[in-house]
Design a protein around this nucleic acid. Structure first.
Length: 868
RNA sequence: GCCGGGAUGGCGGAAUCGGUAGACGCACGGGACUCAAAAUCCCGCGGUGGCAACAUCGUGAGGGUUCGAGUCCCUCUCCCGGCACCA
């Protein structure tokens, strides 16, 4: 055995062996229980970053642990290969997105292999492969046949200079990132998936999932199921004349029917037909509506905007009181959200209150909460709470639910309203005016309208040699792609030049891993592996991806393609790896990001970063604080340097040991030396043991008390580490526990044969316990400890219950809750004996002094608290 | 703005069910080994007072519940994630 630890030679050798023996390929059937664990597939941005290392090492540790526990484990890998960064890279480097993406995949696959992850590579997939995305197209058409896909207009960010649709990410402070031009809203036709049809099931079946409660809560809130009433505010007579060609009133939805007596205005979104009608012959209102079109479509931006509005001169009447109220156009009413219109109740809705204050609209209290004094000066949180009706005519004195019911049934009997369940969730718009994505398999025929591409003509292939220029949609400028004939009438027609949202790709890839090469979208092998036993991914996916994937699986189930209701039985959300972000605006307003290593930072008095200068030109750059590692912000850290300097095992152990995996991690490599030191020390301990020759056996009776204590520590550690890996999904504390064990082993100065045998026991278990985290070094060490056997075949070490038995234990003694002493008692001691021992302790006596003992609390096995 | 989460020594963190706050490690200081350095090993390491034993304060801030609170409740501050076209 080599006296020194050389990861640079061990790791590639062991990786080659794993590859040659196909060590990690999982059979699609087995007498063992199956365990399917997947980490969210990476976007092939060019290089792995630390977030990936954390994600896949966590998955890998779980792979090894479950394998040691006797399961048929599958850990696959794929590439989320479509998306915006490929187009940006293409523009920057004049390389086609396809080539750029495939080169990145090849490089990153090598990096994955160098990390030693136990991936079954025979199942690898890339979503930009036509063999994969043809099934996106196929399923899109099936959903359309069932009415689950439909077309309507949607609002997008429009860059008026580049004449192109911008992603939200490309809108920074209301301006296009490349042009610096002010972004506008624009309505365009798009395809939608009817996820709202599954809203109830998506809420209800969350309860049975082994997911973090916080994620379930976020999904519930996102879907936002609320019960209420949708009703008509009838037009006032003058308004009815003008709106004669339309509906008889304004449709609104409310969950607070009980506040209807407090309505003092109505408001509609700028896009609402009533607003557009009112703007005719009203240039000021038309200008206001035009102003509302400025800015992007991001909710965060809309929600923080100053509330502005303008009266339309049109009136509706409160159906209960027949009181007329004016309709306003308001920028805080969202079009495409419910009816795009609302009843304004400033007395009991914070946003309405702020709006009413600003425009001097009446504020009327109609709900009373006992003991609270209402004032229209400033909004108080309790104004929006349910209470008892007042100033409400016949509803006076009714409690919240009674008032809601009474108003609702009155609206129903007038034929104006119906009870409805409203969701915050909106249908999923999947059309993207981009090039690098799955083509939408629709032909637009001037005679027949939207016509599906027949199944036998799928996939509609995306041309791969295009380089976009940032203006408009590339496919829309490529006649050889869009010119076609109508599948129905045969006449000249045009393909849909939009592509699908990349969340479509990631909604079902894990099903395809289960059945690579299937002649259909999925086959019966998916029934074996699904539902997934453990899904692992960043907390940033808590809502969108995880909700779309759940919807997709339910839709596939209802199409008869799957037998499961939910894709992911258990979910682990890892915290993000963050790093500092530096940027600079150029004179046009376009933004440029700097990598942390490209700048020199200036610290303030407290050591926090206050500013920075670019190393290249010495000019200042802005410090934006810390944020998630991303390609676009250029703050990712490539693990390659660490692999080359310290080896994969050190890199793996470092990210796992640094902090709990579900917590955010601010990147720093400060402690990495200590991890390398630990592995060298482990190597040396095994080397010393092995080079001392054959290890004898021993019997229980030969153990000294020191060796018994060491065995106690060992078996407690095995118990703890198994619990941490299996139940707690905690990977930093096991390492600390093993370090403690080895510290205790180092203190053993006993060279007797029995001590050497116990040392062997400790080292073997240590190697097994660490193997999920550092599989290369442990594979090499196992060969030395147990020649002729293979680490991958070993089960998880057994806890020896006999080693855990103790004669006496130490208890803590508190006086009035403060630690005052320690006592040793027999494990069999009674409560009375423990109390007496505690009261007899010298230090305890001193603190009690002459005071009277009121109460003694004994927590068995832990402490005694004496209350005086 | 709304939804979800977080805050513990100089730093990363531990304390799993309300029961010894600071495990384990990093950095740092002292020492051993060495011609020297690296590596390695040993000791120390929250604040204050004290030669020490020890006492006392201390888990973002302020209140509360409890024999006992990092952990539970209320109010607040700051940071992070998501907000539907980043993935």
């Amino acid at each position: 055995m080599d006296a020194q630890y050389h990861p640079g030679s061990i790791e590639p050798r062991i990786q080659r062996e794993w590859k040659d023996e196909r060590a990690f390929s999982a059979p699609d059937q087995s007498p063992k229980p199956k365990y399917y664990c997947v980490s969210m597939l990476p976007y092939p941005s060019g290089k792995l970053h630390m977030g990936h290392v954390r994600n896949y090492t966590l998955n890998d540790a779980l792979y090894h642990f479950k394998r040691m526990k006797g399961m048929n484990v599958l850990m696959p890998m794929g590439w989320d290969a479509f998306g915006l960064p490929a187009e940006n890279a293409a523009m920057a480097n004049k390389v086609a997105p396809g080539k750029w993406t495939r080169d990145n995949i090849a490089y990153m696959r090598k990096q994955c292999q160098a990390m030693g992850w136990a991936i079954d590579w025979s199942r690898e997939l890339a979503t930009c492969d036509p063999a994969y995305y043809r099934w996106n197209q196929w399923f899109f058409l099936r959903l359309r046949e069932k009415g689950l896909v439909y077309k309507k207009t949607g609002v997008v960010n429009w860059d008026p200079v580049d004449m192109t649709v911008l992603a939200n990410e490309q809108v920074i402070d209301g301006r296009g990132w490349r042009t610096g031009a002010e972004v506008e809203k624009r309505e365009i036709p798009m395809w939608y998936m009817r996820i709202t049809q599954y809203a109830d099931e998506l809420v209800d079946s969350l309860d049975g999932l082994g997911w973090p409660e916080k994620v379930k809560q976020m999904q519930r809130n996102w879907i936002g199921r609320s019960r209420g009433v949708e009703f008509t505010l009838p037009y006032a007579p003058e308004t009815a004349k003008r709106m004669a060609d339309q509906k008889k009133g304004l449709r609104v939805f409310t969950t607070r029917a009980d506040t209807i007596m407090g309505v003092t205005f109505a408001a509609v979104a700028a896009e609402h037909p009533l607003a557009i009608e009112a703007a005719k012959g009203n240039p000021r209102l038309a200008a206001f509506i035009e102003e509302c079109r400025k800015g992007g479509v991001q909710e965060a931006e809309l929600a923080t905007m100053e509330k502005k509005g303008m009266p339309t001169g049109l009136y509706v009447v409160n159906p209960i009181t027949s009181e007329p109220v004016e309709v306003w156009v308001a920028n805080y009413v969202l079009w495409g959200y419910g009816e795009g219109a609302l009843m304004g109740v400033p007395g009991h809705d914070e946003r309405d209150f702020v709006f009413a204050k600003k425009y001097n609209l009446p504020i009327r209290q109609v709900i009373d909460i006992e003991g609270q004094a209402y004032s229209t000066d400033e909004h108080q949180p309790w104004y929006d709470e349910p209470g008892r009706n007042m100033n409400s005519g016949k509803y006076d004195g009714l409690g919240h639910q009674a008032a809601v019911d009474a108003v609702t049934s009155d609206l129903e009997s007038m034929g104006l309203g119906t009870k409805r369940i409203q969701y915050r969730l909106r249908d999923w718009g999947i059309s993207r005016q981009r090039y690098w994505g799955t083509p939408i398999p629709i032909v637009i025929c001037p005679k027949c309208g939207d016509v599906a591409v027949p199944d036998d003509q799928l996939p509609v292939i995306l041309p791969e040699d295009l380089v976009p220029d940032g203006t408009g949609s590339p496919l829309a400028k490529m006649p050889s792609f869009y010119e076609t004939n109508c599948p129905k009438c045969g006449g000249a027609a045009k393909r849909d030049t939009d592509t699908m949202d990349t969340f479509v790709d990631s909604s079902w890839y894990y099903l395809r891993y289960a059945c690579p090469g299937a002649g259909a979208m999925v086959d019966s092998r998916a029934d074996y592996w699904m539902p997934m036993d453990q899904y692992i991914g960043g907390i940033e996916h808590a809502i969108l991806h995880l909700l779309y994937a759940r919807f997709w699986v339910k839709a596939m189930r209802d199409m008869g393609l799957l037998k499961i209701d939910e894709p992911f039985s258990n979910l682990f959300t890892q915290g993000m790896v963050l790093n500092h972000i530096f940027s600079r605006r150029n004179d046009k307003g376009a933004i440029q990001y700097f990598a942390p290593e490209e700048v020199e930072t200036v610290a303030d008095a407290e050591g926090h970063i206050a500013g920075a200068k670019a190393k290249a030109d010495g000019k200042p750059v802005d410090y934006e604080g810390i944020g998630t590692m991303s390609k676009s912000k250029r703050n990712g850290v490539d693990p390659q340097d660490i692999i080359e300097r310290y080896g994969a095992d050190t890199a793996r152990l470092y990210v796992m040991e640094a902090n709990p995996p579900d917590m955010t991690m601010l990147w720093s490599d400060a402690a990495i030396e200590g991890v390398g030191r630990f592995l060298r020390r482990l190597w040396k301990m095994v080397h010393d043991q092995v080079s001392a020759g054959i290890v004898p056996t021993y019997s229980e009776g030969e153990l000294t008390s020191e060796l018994r204590a060491l065995r106690l520590k060992l078996h407690r550690t095995i118990e703890k580490v198994g619990d941490d890996y299996g139940r707690r999904m905690q990977f930093n504390t096991p390492v600390a526990a093993v370090r403690e064990l080895l510290n205790q082993l180092s203190e053993l100065k006993d060279a007797s044969p029995v001590a050497r045998a116990v040392t062997q026991e400790v080292l073997e278990a240590t190697v097994l316990m660490l193997s999920p985290l550092v599989p290369h070094i442990t594979t090499a060490l196992w060969r030395e400890l147990r020649p002729g056997t293979r680490l991958l075949d070993q089960p998880w070490p057994q806890v020896d219950a006999a080693a855990l038995v103790q004669d006496s234990i130490e208890l803590v003694v508190q006086v009035n809750g403060k630690l005052r002493g320690h006592i040793g008692v027999a494990t069999t001691a009674t409560r009375e004996q423990v109390e007496q021992a505690a009261l007899a302790d010298e230090a305890v006596k001193r603190f009690i002094g002459g005071a009277k003992v009121k109460k003694v609390i004994v927590v068995p096995g832990r402490l005694v608290n004496i209350v005086v």
